[in-house]
């Protein structure tokens, strides 16, 4: 019974890994500039590999293996974003201009991370280019 539950958990984790990995690769081709490509591929890639680790953790045969997996996850949490940061930093230092879509779309849901302090009119597009950046 328990084995079925752990296998279902592992299945869900591996499925999400496949979905996020595919999304990362699509993002790599879909966006026009290095920063946006790094966003998609590093974030979705990290999540995909992390999901694989979670699935393997559910299937781990012993506590010794599980402990090592947890240590691997900790190392990966450090190394995954650092890799993306290094590529993005190289692009930034070599003066590549970030891509600006013609009509950027505001997503009010992002206020979730601001704790509700910053308010902004819903669906108002960003002001046009003013050169103040």
């Amino acid at each position: 019974m328990i084995s079925i539950v752990t296998e279902l958990i592992a299945l869900a984790a591996f499925t999400s890994a496949a979905v996020f990995g595919t999304a990362g690769i699509i993002g790599l081709y879909r966006f026009p500039d290095p920063y946006a490509r790094m966003q998609a591929s590093s974030l979705c890639g990290t999540t995909a590999v992390f999901s694989v680790f979670l699935g393997s953790l559910a299937l781990a045969p012993s506590w010794a293996v599980a402990t090592r997996l947890v240590v691997l996850m900790a190392f990966f949490l450090v190394s995954g974003p650092t890799g993306g940061h290094i590529v993005a930093r190289f692009a930034w230092n070599s003066g590549i201009d970030p891509w600006r879509p013609v009509s950027p779309v505001i997503r009010p849901a992002r206020r979730r991370f601001g704790g509700g302090k910053v308010e902004r009119a819903k669906d108002s597009p960003l002001p046009p280019e003013s050169g103040i950046d």
């Binding site: 999304a23 699509i26 993002g27 879909r30 966006f31 500039d33 920063y35 946006a36 966003q39 998609a40 970030p98 891509w99 600006r100 879509p101 950027p104 779309v105 505001i106 997503r107 960003l126 950046d133």
Partner: peptide, 9 residues
């Protein structure tokens, strides 16, 4: 990614 909406900055 699916909707193609972004405002990078």
């Amino acid at each position: 990614l699916v909707r193609g909406h972004a405002s990078p900055r």
